[in-house]
Design a protein around this nucleic acid. Sequence first.
DNA 1: TAGATTGTTAATCGATTAACAATC
DNA 2: TAGATTGTTAATCGATTAACAATC
Lengths: 230, 230
Amino acid sequence: MAENSTKTVKGVKRKNKTEQMLVSATVIKRLPRYYRYLRQLLSDDIRRISSGELSKMMNVTASQIRQDFNCFGGFGQQGYGYNVKYLYTKIGELLGVTSNLSAIIVGAGNLGSALASSPIFERRGISLLALFDNNTSLVGTKKYGFPVYDISLLEEFVKKNEVDIAIITIPRDYAPEMAEKLASYGIKGLWNFTSAELDVSKYGVESENVHLGDSLMTLCYKVTNKEEKD
Amino acid sequence: MAENSTKTVKGVKRKNKTEQMLVSATVIKRLPRYYRYLRQLLSDDIRRISSGELSKMMNVTASQIRQDFNCFGGFGQQGYGYNVKYLYTKIGELLGVTSNLSAIIVGAGNLGSALASSPIFERRGISLLALFDNNTSLVGTKKYGFPVYDISLLEEFVKKNEVDIAIITIPRDYAPEMAEKLASYGIKGLWNFTSAELDVSKYGVESENVHLGDSLMTLCYKVTNKEEKD
DNA sequence: TAGATTGTTAATCGATTAACAATC
DNA sequence: TAGATTGTTAATCGATTAACAATC
């Protein structure tokens, strides 16, 4: 992916280092946030930014920003800072925006439908292909342009279309079994919205557990236990 | 809240320490997960559990479990372990399950409606009161039993009903302004589903930013960059 | 060149784990 | 009592921050 070459971007030479150690999950989880801020800068027509300026905007240290970017070989230039467009593109590539991933939603209920209606996939270069459900009154309909298929067609569809990501919005109790099935069909990633913890790493499948309930409870903790203001 | 008293629970004496330092966010964020596992144990009729057993179930170290619980003064008993029911209740209290919080959903679109239809609030002792929207075709209807009111009624409603938590499911661009308004109306917590970062801590309002897009991108990173399996 | 700002090493901080004495 | 397991202190690990030499 990264190589020991020298590229010329905006008339400026840049070095790409050979991929070093694996990057910690702590750093990875910060990348989408950088990506959001960089898109904003880009749409504000800001061409360059220093770690110092970005740190003020994002409320993190400049040190952390430079350390984070350096995990991937360094995207900046001494004395100049970072080229916003270049940095945005690079982080986008890291995050897989250009890797043309495909996705399906398993569970065409309220949450599944809400996701289908949102621009969340399109914005990240992910092709949503279809929804699946076992509810016969949903099967055969379309949700925001995407077909809802019967769950019995899932295996064939996933294998034929080499689906990368499955989004799980089915009732909690069916989730672990469904996750295993999807893993066996060759899914590469699982985006889990149920309160079950789905770990299919033993099949080499990556997963992200959203756990909305945990987020809500964390908020409740903060609301309940906030007394001492500073 | 906690006091230097001695309680008798299930015939066992327990000490409550005076609240010590403030507990780190790292620990807080783990509480909902403990809570989930403990509920499971409870429904499986398991009365007691040791940190060692729980650590195996949850894939964390027993040390971490004991450290975490001890941030709140210790819920266990030497030589015995933890009483599941007691521990579950205690963590629930910490998380505000018994503090009778109220909530509204601002934005009755697909995502707002999906949340209204879910048992996520009821399960955590939160009363969902209503939804708000500016779409006249939604106003006056009911979503899963909850009324949808016009956004113009928001201020009066929040103040009159002393609403604790506002859930923001409106388009991103309106979110910061709405957050400030809600803060000024006296909201205590904000559960934010937009991609905007809403920080109203300057008004003393707590917030949780869900950032589904970030979660999806993190998954994309993992899917795209998984090569080396072990 | 001089100034700016990165890339990177070293120092600090906080979180996790290990160890064990206290005690049920 | 003896055995088990917590509560808690000490050791380790990893992540963050500070500092500065490299360099554009």
